[in-house]
Amino acid sequence: MTATRAVPAPRRSAARAGSAFLSAHPRARLALLLSAPLFWLGVVYIVALVLLLVTAFWSVDSFTGEITTEFTLDNIVEVVTGSLYQTVTLRTIGVALAVTVIDVALALPIAFFMAKVATPRMQRVLLIMVLTPLWASYLVKAYAWRSVLSQDGILEWLVSPFGGHTPGYGLPATIITLSYLWLPYVILPIYAGLERVPDSLLEASGDLGGRTWPTLRLVVLPLALPAIIAGTIFSFSLSLGDYITVNIVGGTSQMLGNLVYTNVGAANNLPLAAAIALIPIVIIFGYLFLVRRTGALDNL
């Protein structure tokens, strides 16, 4: 062979040396890659949670509003034993469950249609339609529902000829509005989950003699279950923490979020607010613990 023309060797530089080092040391590479996000997660998230937890064990001077950093269980005891907190907690869980059930019932057929029936073009159109409401402000949507559900709103106008009436402001209005607000968050994971189910599995079921219902029950639902649970985590936890919607359309009802809000704002009692805020956190952790085994957390 003839001598090949020399290709110049890559220039030596500090960056190159650094890259070479990282290429040879995967652990260093990982550490460098993860340190910034981990720092963020650690400081902003974990520390904030821990501070919340710690604050719950402090108390506040009622007149000056100064926080007293002496350890006390008073807030926790009050939150656990106070009938107000029990009532509101039960109401909040009830609302969150109702919203979740409604959302799953609505999201399943929509997501199934999007993932398995619609043409790719239709699929994109539907996806955009599902996502569009997310571009509008939360407040705008909540106030829109306030106007829809009003005594002289569209709903009243629509149903009054049939003897129906708008539910007015209250818990039903809250459940309707929250269901609307969180629906995209439930559709999307279920859609993604169903999308991952190969069409051939549905065909295989039909091929083996499975009609529509057995196919849905034995193949689609079990495979979509983790995605459904992932969706319920969104609707459930978002409902659990909400206080704005209930303020706008909830009439006189209040949820845990309102108690936290009043205690941070009006009452200026951060420790009690922290103690109340622990209720939804405990509930959500309990829920996550329950669903952990289903593999739903991989679908988030």
């Binding site: 599995l201 083996l208 003699g209 009609r211 034995l218």
Partner: peptide, 30 residues
Amino acid sequence: FDRDVNTVFQDYALFPHMSVLDNVAYGLRV
């Protein structure tokens, strides 16, 4: 499901959430 033919799929299309036995028994189950 109303045709007396069955298919072996290119990707096999085995139900991932079922055991091998349940997969094979699926057609009999439905």
